[in-house]
């Protein structure tokens, strides 16, 4: 055990240093690479220019398109969020200052949505990522027809959301749904999945888990394939079994990717609206009669698209951003403190 730890210490720690604590300022020192010896001075100048300019050249296409088509419209919504503006009268904007935001702070629906977002986020994201990791691990074995297996795992992501929701709505229907029918055999009374508080959140989460597990598994699988096999070899030589290898080689090496999926899934959970919207059927944007599964994303959709309060809806959108920033900052402070006091 101990020896295997030691053997693995090196890659694990180097993996640890890589992700997020200083995003972007990665360790690569090649930017200062020595120019090749014995070349003509124009070549070395060209080389130095290449060194300096290439990062900007590489990110330029991304930022040009991204800035124009993603950033600018988003900034527009920030502008909307500071105004009273209806979807039906975009030119008729009156300055609201932070009015839309203070309105939210005093809105019971907003806090309720925030709470639902959190609880649905947890019960959908945690099992989903764990299952994805496990699934990726299984897919990483040498399999007969490996491509077919991968393809199959991604079908939920490709299946039309409307078709999938129809299936789940039937499964979870109160009267005559298959799940209540099964529960009946265990002696459980039929659950009104859509209207019960925890039941609806569970049902929505199950759709999310079903839809996104294979997706995340594939992301993990790609990262697993880049893990050098000699790490496993040395672990094996040190007597680590499959399970220990998974814990001490695979997981540490996947850290940047795990961080990625956690961030992306958190963001996805915050913005979640498609699944609960369709699960709710007609006027699904309410998220149940007591808003029991109305997420922030759904509340925003309801305000902006159904009711047409574009200003308030934009404020919800940007408050999601602020919430995630707060979460990120708190997370950073906590992890910094944890690292200081080992």
């Amino acid at each position: 055990m101990t020896s295997s730890h030691e053997a693995l210490a090196h890659p694990a720690s180097s993996a640890e240093a890589a992700p997020g604590n200083q995003p972007g300022a990665a360790r690569g020192a090649h930017g200062r690479g020595t120019p090749p010896k014995g070349t003509a001075s124009w070549r070395s100048r060209l080389y130095r220019w290449d060194m300096k300019a290439s990062p900007y050249v590489l990110i330029a296409p991304f930022f040009v398109v991204f800035g124009a088509f993603s950033l600018v419209p988003l900034l527009y919504t920030a502008w909307y969020s500071l105004h009273h503006v209806q979807l039906s009268a975009l030119d008729h904007q009156t300055w609201a200052g932070l009015g839309n935001y203070t309105n939210l702070l005093s809105s019971e629906f907003f806090w309720n949505a925030l709470q639902n977002t959190f609880s649905i986020g947890v019960i959908s994201t945690v099992p989903q990522l764990l299952a994805a990791l496990w699934l990726a691990h299984l897919l990483n074995y040498r399999l007969r027809g490996s491509t077919a297996w991968r393809v199959v795992m991604l079908t939920p992501y490709a299946t039309s959301v409307a078709a999938a929701t129809l299936v789940f709505t039937l499964l979870y229907s109160w009267d005559g749904g298959m799940i209540n029918w099964l529960l009946h055999f265990v002696g459980v009374d039929p659950v009104n999945w859509r209207e019960s508080d925890w039941g609806s959140q569970f049902a929505v989460s199950s759709i999310v888990i079903w839809r996104w597990t294979g997706y995340n598994a594939l992301i993990y699988l790609a990262a697993m394939q880049a893990i050098p096999s000699d790490l496993y070899e040395s672990a094996a030589l040190d007597g680590a079994g499959r399970r220990q290898q998974f814990r001490h080689v695979t997981v540490p090496m996947l850290r940047p990717t795990i961080l990625f999926t956690v961030i992306v899934s958190t963001i996805g959970a915050t913005q979640l609206f498609g699944e609960p919207l369709l699960f709710g059927g007609v006027s699904g944007s309410k998220g149940g009669s007591e808003h029991q599964y109305q997420t922030l994303g759904l509340y925003m959709y309801d305000q902006g698209w159904i009711i047409g309060n574009l200003g308030k809806a934009s404020a919800i959108a940007w408050s999601m951003f602020l919430i995630l920033v707060i979460v990120a900052v708190v997370n950073m402070l906590l992890s910094r403190r944890l690292r200081k006091s080992p």
Binding site: S88, S283, S289
Partner: peptide, 21 residues
């Protein structure tokens, strides 16, 4: 102008709460 969302508030929130909850 907000007839539709008001109607939905009564039917899909108010009435549904009484009927199903």
């Amino acid at each position: 102008p907000k007839d539709k969302p008001i109607d939905s508030a009564i039917a899909d929130v108010g009435i549904l709460q009484v009927e199903q909850k």
